[in-house]
Amino acid sequence: MKRKMIVMAMATILATGLSACKTTTVERVDTDSVQDLSGNWNDTDSRLVSSRMVSDMMSRKWLTNYQVKNGKNPVLIVGAVRNLSHEHINTRTFINDLERELINSGEVEFVASSKERGEIRAERQDQAANASMGTQNVAGEETGADFMLKGQINTIFDAAGDTQVKYYQIDLTLISLKDNRKVWLGQKKIKKVLETGRFR
């Protein structure tokens, strides 16, 4: 009798142990929805900052000045966006967001970055050797950029007790490649307050 009870008790323990295994659930969400999990820099920040800053850039004087003077849209290139913050931020997705916003604005022309150019040049060399005359793209006809967009992400972090404050400052600078003039400076700030739990 007692033996049976022990066996049952052990079986119960085993069963509770096993039922603890969770099954994975997947829920699809809109990529525009805001989901703050850890308080770190996330996709929402990247998207919001890039769209706000680009629209600010497009509404400023330098653009119309250039268009009036030269009768064409300026050609841009995105340089480095340095991460000088407290977090490991994927600056590549931020740069991609910036490029997308810029191209889609329709006000500026865009050329490939130095890394991409290498690949394209290799393809052109290959064309010169292998493609028929009529379809070849010859070297030496690339469009040079007029401006380069550079930037950096900085943070100020402060914590006391269970409360943390994260302050992000994103600075972008548009520099004329012809004469190193800075034609536009943009700044966007994000402030987040985090409360952490005392118990788990």
Binding site: R82, N83, L84, S85, H86, E87, H88, T155, F157, A159
Partner: peptide, 17 residues
């Protein structure tokens, strides 16, 4: 190096705490 700098900032914060 920029990412190593991120760690430098983080550990600075940790040491302060």
């Amino acid at each position: 190096l920029d990412e190593a700098r991120v760690e430098a900032l983080q550990v600075d914060e940790r040491l302060k705490q």
